[in-house]
Write a protein that binds this DNA or RNA. Structure first.
Lengths: 138, 138
DNA sequence: AAACTATTGCAACTTTGTTGCAAATATTTT
DNA sequence: AAAATATTTGCAACAAAGTTGCAATAGTTT
C-alpha cells in the first residue's frame, strides 16, 4: 500500500497545498529532525516565514510531526512514525543529538525507559534526549 | 560548614557583585527552576536584561546552574546541587514539569535511567524530562 | 588608595515567533 | 467546469528573546 504525501494530508483533513507538500516531503527526505531555520533554508526561501511556522504548528496539532526538546533549547521537529489507525501518534522512542554533526535522530529502536516518580507525582509524558557521537561521526 | 553566596562565587573565581549575589540568592530561595523572565520580574527589574543573560551564561559555564530542556522549548535554569570537590557538576537527576502549575522540579532522588544505544552511537549526556502533575497539584 | 581587572548598562541590532487582514489558492457544490 | 465556499498564504506590523561593542562603573589586587 502506497501512501503519498497528498494522502497523508487528506487523511488529516488538511488541504493539499504547495507549502505543506514541500515541507512534508522535506521531512521524509531528511529522515532526521529539522529546525524552523533548516526548513526556511532548504525550501530556498520559497515560502513565507509565517507560513512555515503555521504549517509546523498544524502538523504538530495533527500528530504528523512532533517537537523534540533539546539541551540548548532550540526547537526541533521530526516525523511521527508510529501512528495508530486513528492517526494518533504513540511516540515511545528516545532522541539522539550528535555533538559533532548536529543531526538529531529518532531512535525508534530504543524505548523510553520507565521512571519511578516520588509519591504525589503523576507521569504523563517522558522525554529522553541523549547527546554524544552518532554512528557516522564516531 | 556554612557556605555563603559570596563563598560560592569566590570558589568559582567570580567577582562578588550585586547582580550575581542577588540572582544566586533567588535560585536558593526558589528551589525550583527559573526562566530568564522570572528572574527579571523577581529582581524587580533592578538589573539590565543583558546583565541577567550574561550572569546566567557565566553560572552555566562555571557549573553553578544548569539548563533544563523543556517540552515547550522555553529556557529554564536550576541550581546544580551535586558538585564534586573541583566544582564540576555531575547531574544525575531527572526533571519534572507540572502541567498544572508550571513549576519545574529537579528530582534529585530519581536517577537517570540507563539507555542502550544502537551500535556506533556514543553516549555523552542524557536528559530526561517528565511532565504530569506534581505533588501539590494532584 | 592607586593601579588594574572584571563587570555592568546602554544602545543598537539580529533572530525568533505572533497576529490581523486582504489576496490567492484549494475544495465543494451545483 | 464554473460558481460558491472554505481554507490557506503572504504581507505588514509587531512583540519577545537573545547578542555584541564599548564606555562607565564596580570589584580586586598590590
Amino acid at each position: 500500500m502506497h501512501t503519498s504525501i497528498a494522502d497523508i494530508l487528506k487523511q488529516n483533513q488538511l488541504s493539499v497545498t504547495g507549502s505543506r507538500t514541500k515541507i512534508l516531503e522535506l521531512f521524509q527526505q531528511t529522515g532526521g529532525a529539522l529546525a524552523h531555520a533548516d526548513i526556511e533554508l532548504k525550501t530556498g526561501e520559497q515560502f513565507d516565514r509565517v507560513t512555515i511556522y503555521r504549517t509546523l504548528q498544524t502538523f504538530v496539532e495533527k500528530g504528523i510531526i512532533h517537537t523534540i526538546p533539546t539541551a540548548d533549547n532550540s526547537v526541533l521537529y521530526a516525523l511521527c512514525k508510529d501512528q495508530c489507525s486513528e492517526g494518533h501518534h504513540h511516540d515511545n522512542h528516545i532522541h539522539f543529538i550528535c555533538d559533532d554533526c548536529g543531526t538529531t535522530y529518532c531512535l525508534e529502536q530504543v524505548a523510553i525507559p520507565e521512571v519511578r516518580l516520588p509519591n504525589g507525582f503523576t507521569k504523563k509524558q517522558t522525554d529522553v534526549v541523549v547527546s554524544g557521537l552518532c554512528n557516522k561521526c564516531s
